[in-house]
């Protein structure tokens, strides 16, 4: 049973990876701009020299040939060499992964804690000033762009109160501001989902029944309400985690961190197809894995889903 389930998920994952790679290829091919010209024009290369380089990069071949070669390299897990950097793409991604993953994990932790702190009181005190306050805060979280909150955080916690470094990485202290800012932005969505789910579950008959049985409020909340309400929040968190692996580019720039987000944005600007493909794959893989993990965790939280799996 579990084996067929995993097999189905694996087939789905391969499909997602193929789709991501194909979209990356098409998007870059449809965007105007010749990578060879972009790389060489400012150096005074002549049109002939640029043409030679274009051929060398395989950009003269018909599109289906380029796509076929692209897929073959993909299957062989040969990520190729960056046209801009002139280095192996796999190595470049491996270099950027630690700081990217550290930021994603820390920011997710902040987002979950903050999301629960904002979402739970809102649901439990629905309709009161507590609800209004925490819901408003979560809207602020959702709608504050990270480049602004990032600069604000630098001004307050790095310039006026010199508590944390504003730039770079290396020590846990370097992670506080970027993870805080990114987690702050992500927590809004989690808080909204937590609130909505908890409100819904609180109305369920089994919660009324649990209360009627005389269970302590704490037991009702943690065993009966949260367990049932957290599934969707988990799914949202997993999606956001996947997104942060390649989409945290603003936070990375503001805090002068390295990361996959910055790498892929630069690669898109320069039409550096091998790097875009490499990062897309890592991001797609991360999405597949985190959503698998989230689904398994939901199954563990909610036995009804487990039944459905079988």
């Amino acid at each position: 049973m579990a084996a067929t389930y995993l097999f189905r998920r694996a087939v789905g994952a391969v499909f997602v990876l193929w789709l991501a790679a194909t979209l990356a290829f098409l998007a870059l091919k449809l965007t105007p701009g010749d990578p060879a010209r972009a790389l060489l024009a400012a150096s005074g290369a002549t049109s002939d020299e640029i043409a030679v380089r274009r051929a060398q990069l395989g950009l003269d071949d018909p599109l289906p040939v380029q796509y076929g070669r692209y897929l073959v390299e993909l299957v062989r897990v040969d990520l190729g060499e960056s046209w801009l950097h002139g280095r192996p793409v796999g190595q470049m991604i491996v270099e950027q992964l630690p700081s990217t993953v550290a930021l994603a994990i820390a920011a997710t932790a902040v987002a979950v804690v903050l999301g629960l702190l904002l979402g739970l009181p809102a649901a439990l005190r629905q309709g009161t000033w507590v609800d209004t306050l925490t819901t408003s805060i979560s809207v602020v979280c959702l709608s504050t762009p990270t480049y602004w909150s990032g600069l604000l955080a630098i001004l307050v916690f790095s310039l006026y109160l010199p508590l944390f470094p504003s730039a770079g990485q290396g020590s846990p202290g370097h992670l506080v501001l970027p993870a805080g800012v990114l987690g702050f932005a992500m927590s809004g969505a989690i808080a909204r989902v937590v609130r909505a789910q908890v409100v819904e579950v609180l109305r369920a008959n089994y919660v009324v029944a649990a209360r009627a049985k005389g269970l302590t409020p704490r037991r009702v909340l943690f065993v009966h309400v949260l367990r049932n309400a957290l599934g969707p929040a988990l799914a949202v968190t997993a999606l956001q985690f996947g997104f942060m692996l390649s989409g945290a580019v603003v936070t990375e720039s503001v805090f002068a961190r390295s990361g996959l987000g910055k790498l892929v944005v630069q690669a898109i600007v320069w039409r550096d197809l091998p790097v875009v493909r490499g990062v897309m794959l890592v991001a797609a893989l991360a999405f597949v894995l985190t959503s698998l993990a989230a689904d398994l965790a939901r199954g563990w939280l909610d036995p009804r889903l487990r039944e459905g799996l079988q």
Partner: peptide, 11 residues
Amino acid sequence: ATRSPALESGE
């Protein structure tokens, strides 16, 4: 936008 704050904070 972060360049002058980094200078001012000694980064």
